[in-house]
């Protein structure tokens, strides 16, 4: 297969970037999208050019490192697929493929296709945990959680933190990311104890990072490689309301 690649190149965070066009021949349909980029990079290096920098690690769709905006879709045209799981057989021979980094004020570009997602980290630092010390855990089965709830909690917890939700949102909002974690803990007894403070703090941090606001277009759900549901955003909204409505003053 042959492709024309149009890729965003940017030397570093401060440099001005631009698109470069690379024709690429003899791509095997069995290649994954990232293997195709490896293939391109090999050719670039052989020609004495700098290879395209992109983030990746596990290459099996679970670490959340890779994230490219491909032809107008985060992680490319296939649903429930990360960039590394995408294969060239999903593209048409001769196609022009435009590859961009995630775009958001909260995700500044570091180099080429790599963005800085530390804003996601800070949202988690604000409250994405249960306050429990090593050694204080009760027996695991002392808190039964029904299978249906447990499955739902798992669905929320499946987030890989790739940032596709932000990339897909026309408002570059991070609601799905924050909501998944908030919902995961709000649904189980371990997390309920501090659910109100958690939602408050995490939303505050999310706002401070400069993400956009949610306008319920549900693009995030559509493009989430793990198919995380926007129901969790509703749940977060509910939690947030009850947090505001029932806020207690410290004595």
């Amino acid at each position: 297969m042959n492709f024309t690649l149009k890729i965003w190149r940017q030397k570093n965070a401060n440099a001005k970037g631009s698109f470069q066009t690379y024709p690429l021949k003899d791509v095997s349909p069995e290649m994954s999208f990232l293997e195709m980029l490896d293939y391109l990079n090999n050719q670039l290096i052989a020609r004495g050019n700098e290879p395209v920098t992109f983030e990746h690690d596990c290459r099996e769709g679970i670490c959340g490192s890779c994230g490219l905006y491909i032809n107008g879709r985060p992680h490319g045209p296939q649903r429930s697929t990360t960039t590394c799981e995408l294969h060239m057989r999903d593209f048409k021979d001769g196609e022009t493929i435009v590859i961009e980094p995630w775009r958001s004020k909260a995700f500044p570009v570091i180099k080429d296709l790599i963005v800085d997602r530390s804003s996601f980290e800070r949202i988690m630092h604000a409250g994405g945990f249960v306050n429990v010390n090593v050694g204080c855990a009760p027996e695991s089965n002392s808190n039964p959680i029904g299978k249906l709830i447990a499955d739902k909690v798992f669905d929320a917890a499946a987030c890989i933190g790739c940032g596709a939700c932000v990339a897909a949102c026309k408002n570059s909002s991070a609601m799905l990311y924050a909501a998944a974690k908030i919902a995961q803990y709000a649904m189980i007894p371990q997390g309920k104890v501090e659910a109100k403070e958690r939602v408050d703090k995490m939303v505050k941090q999310m706002d401070a990072e400069g993400f956009g606001f949610c306008s319920n277009t549900y693009a995030c759900e559509f493009d989430c490689p793990k198919g995380i549901s926007t129901d969790f955003i509703a749940l977060m909204n509910r939690e947030f309301f009850s947090s505001k409505a029932c806020k207690q003053k410290h004595a």
């Binding site: 435009v98 958001s104 408002n171 400069g210 549900y218 693009a219």
Partner: peptide, 29 residues
């Protein structure tokens, strides 16, 4: 206000238009 804020939260726009399948109505509120 929302529109303004959302506009600013993506200072560098995408080259290709977002193609996520969302309800058309929701995108043009």
């Amino acid at each position: 206000v929302l529109q303004w804020h959302n506009y600013r939260s993506r200072p560098v726009k995408y080259h290709t238009r977002l193609r996520s399948e969302t309800s058309t109505f929701s995108r043009f509120m």
